[in-house]
Structures are given as C-alpha cells and as structure tokens.
C-alpha cells in the first residue's frame, strides 16, 4: 500500500512547483534587462547576485547598478508579489464560493481600495499615504460588506456576494463623483492613470508593504489550503465532516481582502489575474487545493511579470497594466470557457 500511494501521484504534480519557481527567477532576471537603458542579461545577473536585494546599498555612480537595483528591481519584486497574491486569492475565493467564475474582487474590496486611493490623490497626499488610505478603505469596504451580509440573519455566501455588489457599486459611484469634481488639468489625469493600474511608481517602501502583507496573509492562506477542499463540498457536507464553516469562510475572505487591498493600494486596478490564473493552474495540477494554491501563486507571478514586461516595452509610452490584463484576460477566459465547460465546472 505504501508503494502504491507514491505511485498514484500525478507525475506532473510533483515537479511543477520547482519548474515554475525556476521560471519565475529566469523571467524576473529577464525583466530586469528590459527598458530604455540597455543592461545585458549577464550584467543583470552579476548585479543581482552581488547585491542584497531588500536593502540595496551600492555604487550610485554606476549607472547599470542604479537602473537594475533602484529603478527596475522594486518594480519586478512588486509585480511578482502582486501576481502571486492575486492568483492565490482567486484560487481561494473560487474554492470558498464553490464557483470558478468568481475573482478575488467579489467582496467589494477592490472598489473600496480604489475609492480610498482616489480620495488620497484628491487630497494631494504623498504616495505612501495614498497606499495607506487605499489599503484602509479596502478593508473598510470588506467590513461593510460583512456587516451588510450579517443583516440578512444568516451569513450565506449569496448574501455576501450581493453585499459586495452593493458596497462595490456605492464605492464605484463615489469614485465617479470624485472624478467629476477633480481638477481636470492636474488631478484627473493622475486619478485616471492610477485607476487604470500601473506599477510605474514602484519603490522599496511599497515592496515592503506588499511583502509584509503577502508573507502574512499568503502563508496563512497556503497553510489553510487543504481546508478549502472541505469548504468547496458545500456547507452541509463540510459541517458534517467537522469543519467550522462560518469561521473558516470569514477567515479566508479576510486574508484574501488583505492581499487584494495591498495590491490595489500600490498599483491601482489590475483585474482578471485572480480569475484566470487559477484556471491555468487547474489545467496543470488539477483542482485539488493543496497543489492548486502554490501552483496558482507561481503562475500568477509569471503571468503578471509577463504582462508588466509587455506593458512597459511594447510601445513608446507605457501601457497601463490594468488595461493589458483585461484586454489579454478576456480572450484567455473566453478560450478557457470554451475549452473547459464540457469538463464539468459549469455543473450546477
């Protein structure tokens, strides 16, 4: 029996994480070569492996070092972390809601964070304060959605989805209102640009915020990943198996909200990543969440890095990454829809 259980594992499932990690590392190094100032791959590799990345101290006279470590490195790190967080959140949310068509944005967190960010830009707050207010209001939106859902008496999944729609719609209208009130020459362009989503203003401070949140919430999410299998069976069955359904569901959603709020606060609206990447991961390792969550995280990092590379190098002027992820995400999703709907995830 012992030998059997080892044999039974899918051959791809065990080596996929390792290959994906190598792919992330290579893609990150390649991303560091992209940009106006040419730095060859070999130089990038040498600079990266001789500098401690978190607290970059080095030769500020040396242009390639500054470009790689001060300009490009924070952006690459930020993109990777956000991609991982979003994809992991999406995979968790799809499990919690037993629905592969939901994204991490479902509970109104993104809209709340957007409102906070726009308000902070209106108030001419410094960049870090924008991040802080966006993060705070994202969590406030989640709290509001939770409270609304509680009003229905039983905190069902459907109640929360509807509450998320209400909160999201309300925040969206306030964002619109602020935009019409904004000074059209100075404030409006920066609001619009921020809302479209971009990693252009990446700094090590932002990296620290996202890394801290991702380390905490991401680790907790990964630790809880087997429990998502149980939740995805549905309330009655999960309860009968001894799962504290309510507590687990709220806990997971809180962690997802942290990850999403962190991402929106540093880079504005980046949609579709959390929706699509879990599907790609499912094609690779199957639907089981102990394998799905890590794989989604790695794939999310790769996907968003690739998108960001295109965003900053495809045209003369940078394309907002939010536009790119939607423009690329929608057709990919349409393809997945066509490809997988016969395989059962549309089943009622």
């Amino acid at each position: 029996m012992r030998i059997m259980s080892k044999m039974l594992r899918k051959p791809g499932a065990d080596c996929a994480p390792v290959l994906l990690l190598i792919a992330i590392a290579l893609l990150a190094l390649f991303s560091l070569t992209l940009g106006r100032y040419p730095v060859p791959f070999a130089d990038v590799a040498r600079i990266v492996f001789t500098t401690f990345p978190i607290n970059a101290v080095g030769d500020y006279e040396n242009a390639p070092w500054v470009v790689v470590e001060i300009v490009r490195m924070p952006r690459v790190l930020l993109v990777t972390l956000c991609g991982m967080g979003l994809a992991m959140s999406g995979a968790a949310m799809q499990g919690v809601f037993r629905n592969p068509l939901v994204g991490p944005e479902i509970a109104g967190v993104s809209s709340g964070a957007a409102l906070g960010g726009v308000a902070a830009i209106m108030l001419s707050w410094p960049p870090l304060a924008i991040v802080g207010l966006a993060f705070g209001s994202g969590l406030a939106a989640l709290a509001a959605a939770f409270a609304l859902a509680r009003l229905t008496g039983r905190a069902s999944t459907l109640a929360l989805v509807l509450s998320g729609v209400i909160v999201g719609g309300f925040c969206g209208s306030l964002v619109g209102l602020l935009q019409t009130l904004a000074d059209p020459t100075v404030k409006l362009p920066s609001i619009v640009y921020w809302l479209l989503g971009s990693f252009a203003g990446a700094t090590y401070e932002k990296v620290a915020i996202v890394a801290g949140v991702t380390l905490f919430a991401g680790t907790a999410l990964v630790a809880l990943r087997w429990r998502i299998n149980l939740l995805s069976l549905g309330q009655t069955d999960a309860k009968a198996l001894g799962v504290n359904v309510e507590a687990l569901r709220w806990g997971l959603m809180g962690l997802v909200a942290l990850l999403v709020a962190a991402q929106v606060s540093v880079s504005g609206g980046v949609g579709w990543v959390g929706l699509i990447v879990p599907h790609l991961a499912r094609m690779l390792v199957g639907p089981e969440h102990t394998r799905l969550l890590p794989t989604s995280a790695y794939l999310g990092g790769i996907y968003l890095l690739a998108m960001d590379d295109i965003a900053r190098s495809a045209t003369e002027q940078e394309i907002p990454i939010g536009l790119l992820t939607s423009a690329v995400g929608a057709p990919i999703f349409a393809f997945l829809f066509w490809k997988t709907q016969s395989k059962g995830w549309m089943r009622e």
Binding site: P100, L224, N229
Partner: peptide, 21 residues
C-alpha cells in the same frame, strides 16, 4: 464543483484528525 480525485474525496473524511493549518 471541482473534480477532485476519488482519493482526495475519501481523504476529506480525515478533517477532524488533521490540524487547521
């Protein structure tokens, strides 16, 4: 909703024995 393997399904019976994290 998600097509887990038969083994994964049977394994879920162990929920009470496996720690939260």
């Amino acid at each position: 909703t998600f097509d887990y393997t038969a083994l994964d399904m049977a394994l879920m019976g162990r929920a009470r024995k496996i720690g939260l994290f």
